[in-house]
Design a protein around this nucleic acid. Structure first.
Lengths: 116, 116
DNA sequence: TTGTTTCATTGCAATATTACGATATAAAAA
DNA sequence: TTTTTATATCGTAATATTGCAATGAAACAA
């Protein structure tokens, strides 16, 4: 049966606030363990990743490259070409901005909620 | 062409730590603006949602019901049957637990990172 | 020049997610 | 009892995501 809006599988972003869409976009990029692992590895190193990510995480090189691309598109990491390799690191300003938005959402006061 | 692992489209959770999988599961549930909107509405009300969610958010009743189910399955909300309607509210303990895990991930110290 | 190394992109298969009409269920109201 | 109200579930269509082999591109090495 033909559906009306032909947008199934696609979030109806136009009916939500910019903030709600922004939160969900950030959350979505953290919604895969490989991307969480990449970021945690970056934090652990305290510097750039230059190559060894494919060995560190057990996924194929194109798959890692794709996850890096998504993190980069959201601005959470940046990559610098160094010869044949590329060094990725956290984009501090954008990470900080994302953190503020996400923590504001997560850290709401629920002490007064009176529930059934 | 037949693939080897027959798991494409499915995250390979077994190769990640429990923490990484847990973070990504929480993040995934926030990865849709409708679920963010539901939670924000719950916070704003400071009490239960009994019904008016379908009017509040512009999605069909089965769609809202499905989003509520996902939030409930992760334990972030709980529902109490009250006559013909169901009242949903934040599950304080589980929300607090999730918050700690997510904020620990987001709030890592990046002041010392030395990048290219 | 001809490899070699490193990473990105393309193409595609498999699975997941989203949305909603139709229908089921269960309690309240008439 | 019958009807109404509120929510859940089923089935299914459309789109998104994930993963990787094959290939491309760009810098380096020999």
């Amino acid at each position: 049966m033909k559906q009306l809006n032909e947008r199934m599988g696609l979030a109806k972003t136009e009916m939500f606030t910019d903030e709600q869409n922004k939160i969900s976009l950030f959350a979505k990029v953290f919604g895969h363990p490989a991307r969480v692992a990449i970021l945690q590895y970056l934090f652990k190193l305290d510097s750039c990743i230059c190559g060894d990510l494919v060995n560190e995480i057990g996924l194929a090189q194109p798959t890692i490259s794709q996850h890096l691309k998504e993190l980069k598109q959201l601005g959470l990491i940046k990559g610098n070409v160094e010869g044949t390799s590329v060094c990725y690191c956290i984009n501090k300003d954008n990470w900080s901005n994302m953190k503020d938005i996400m923590i504001e959402f997560l850290d709401q006061d629920i002490s007064n909620t009176d529930c059934c």
